[in-house]
């Protein structure tokens, strides 16, 4: 650990000028792909992520069908040029795990009981990675699901809180992540504050963990507003906008 690197200067600013609890600049656009039933493009900092939803549609392979409800099958994929050293194309153990936990987080909000035997397929493609791609992917995926008109209880904003050089920092970028001592990705259902995705690795005290959770939940609510805004921009009509102005 190189303790000479100053993660937070005496003015409370990080390497990229953010404060400890500040998100990177974020942009979400819903409905960007014509073939998919729903889709979203998201940028947060230097991350670039696309999410697409197909379904509900017939479940393949058949043996995964559930006679009482739909299953959610997410595939998270890092494109080969998305990282510093080229990533070999295709799934690896990391992406299989991330796909699984994102599927589970989304299943928590989708009204799967409305679509017996069906599959709702969610594809997340990481075009450019700069730490925090699983959270970016999940945030984009839930917007894509809403864009597809799939009945769900709420959107699922997601963000990671990290610890670098002893400081708790929201939404670590790659540079900070290289000096990270702990990482806590989480996702919530904003209406109820239920946590639907939570992972943690590294080292945090009990107190730090509590603070990190608070920072994460608060930031998820900020992201939630941006998700809703993206959907409003996609679906508002000129008449709606006039109404708002009046």
């Amino acid at each position: 650990m190189d303790s000479d690197i100053v993660m937070v200067d005496d003015k409370g600013k990080r390497l990229d000028g953010r404060t400890a609890d500040e998100l990177r600049p974020m942009k979400i656009e819903a409905g960007v792909l014509s073939n998919a039933d729903g889709s979203a493009y998201l940028e947060i900092g230097k991350n670039k992520v696309l999410a697409a939803v197909y379904g509900p549609r017939e479940c393949h392979p058949r043996h995964l069908q559930n006679p009482t409800r739909a299953i959610v099958q997410c595939k998270y994929n890092m494109q080969s040029y998305s990282v510093g050293d080229r990533k070999r194309p295709g799934p690896d153990r990391r992406s299989v795990e991330i796909s699984k936990i994102i599927s589970e987080a989304l299943e928590a909000v989708i009204q799967v009981e409305l679509f017996p035997r069906a599959s709702i397929d969610v594809y997340i493609e990481i075009l450019q990675a700069n730490a925090g791609t699983r959270c970016a992917g999940l945030t984009a995926a839930s917007v894509a699901l809403a864009d597809a008109g799939i009945p769900m209880r709420d959107l699922v904003p997601s963000v990671a809180v990290g610890k670098a050089n002893g400081h708790l920092l929201l939404d670590l970028n790659k540079e900070e992540d290289n000096y990270g001592e702990a990482d806590l990705p989480l996702a919530i259902v904003p209406k109820t504050n239920e946590v639907v995705l939570l992972q943690m690795d590294g080292h945090m005290t009990r107190e730090e963990f509590g603070t990190a959770m608070e920072m994460g939940v608060k930031a998820c609510h900020e992201i939630y507003e941006m998700q809703k805004d993206a959907l409003r921009r996609r679906y508002s009509t000129e008449a709606d906008e006039q109404e708002v102005e009046e």
């Binding site: 792909l33 073939n35 998919a36 889709s39 696309l50 697409a52 197909y54 549609r57 595939k75 994929n77 494109q79 194309p89 397929d121 594809y123 493609e125």
Partner: peptide
């Protein structure tokens, strides 16, 4: 080239 499932049903 990858024909990823995002691109077409």
């Amino acid at each position: 080239m990858e024909l990823i499932p995002m691109a077409h049903p």
